[in-house]
């Protein structure tokens, strides 16, 4: 087991490993997205209170979930790079940042587009919205810090510390709707409860979209990681061989 992990930690092996995984995530992403979009926009019934405006949930909630999930992947990889000095985990953490930033932006933007007709305002400085905005700045800060260093290893150490410190924001975002009185509604989907607040006809397309977003994240993560490895290892023989093969 340990041997397999050390082997994977070498950038060359990790590059080919990512390449092998890529189609297993890319194709399901496409299929799940199409099914989820059709189900969410056409098949799912309108909400009795919010009418068709609630359909924004099918992009808003998956994007918001992913904004937290990607951060945890980034922070765990960053921690691994600090502890074991593995280059592969540095690559993964770096590749996470722009994807996480995009999901956070989407969660904020679609939330705003949903808030306007439902709450009557584009933005409110309440706990959920503000902590999610802080998350966006954490991602952007990570990217800025990463590009501020010439040496990749030094950059990795600095960004890893930022990523790990930023983890405190994750439970704040998650529990903000329970800890404080906020404009944002409480959680609609609760794993631990028998009675769901949401009907199956809406819950199923939401779960399909959430799964699609997970697969999408993996796809883009693999693509970005492969690129960064090619860039880092451009002086090596195997990269030249790979270039000739492509």
């Amino acid at each position: 087991m340990l041997q397999t992990i050390t082997k994977l930690a070498s950038l060359r092996n990790f590059y080919f490993f990512c390449g092998k995984l890529l189609p297993w995530f890319a194709w399901p992403t496409l299929i799940l997205m199409l099914v989820g979009l059709y189900w969410g926009l056409v098949e799912a019934p309108a909400d009795y209170q919010q009418k068709d405006s609630y359909r924004i949930i099918f992009v808003h909630v998956p994007a918001a979930w992913m904004s937290l999930f990607v951060y945890m992947v980034m922070a765990v990889s960053a921690a691994a790079s600090l502890i074991w000095k593995t280059k592969a985990s540095e690559v993964v953490a770096n590749s996470c940042a722009p994807i996480g930033a995009a999901f956070t932006f989407l969660a904020l933007a679609t939330g705003s587009l949903w808030g306007k007709p439902m709450w009557g305002t584009w933005w409110e400085w309440d706990a959920r919205l503000t902590s999610e905005l802080v998350l966006l700045f954490l991602y952007l800060g990570y990217m800025a810090l990463q590009s501020a260093f010439e040496d990749k290893r030094t950059a990795a150490r600095a960004t890893a510390i930022l990523a790990i410190v930023g983890v405190v924001n994750i439970p704040i975002i998650h529990y903000s709707v329970e800890w404080w009185f906020t404009l944002h509604q409480g959680p609609t989907v609760q794993v631990m409860q028998d009675k769901q607040a949401m009907d199956k006809s809406m819950l199923i397309p939401l779960m399909i979209m959430a799964t699609a977003f997970k697969f999408y994240f993996a796809t883009v993560l693999l693509m970005r990681s492969r690129n960064e490895i090619l860039e880092r290892e451009s002086h090596t023989k195997w990269v030249q061989e790979e270039r000739e093969r492509l």
């Binding site: 068709d52 405006s53 924004i56 989407l106 679609t110 587009l113």
Partner: peptide, 23 residues
């Protein structure tokens, strides 16, 4: 979209544009 066309289609459109750009 029950009159909410602007908000719904902007949300989905934005998501599609951003996610395609990221690929």
């Amino acid at each position: 979209m029950d009159g909410y066309y602007l908000y719904v289609w902007l949300s989905f459109g934005l998501a599609i544009v951003v996610m395609l750009a990221l690929v």
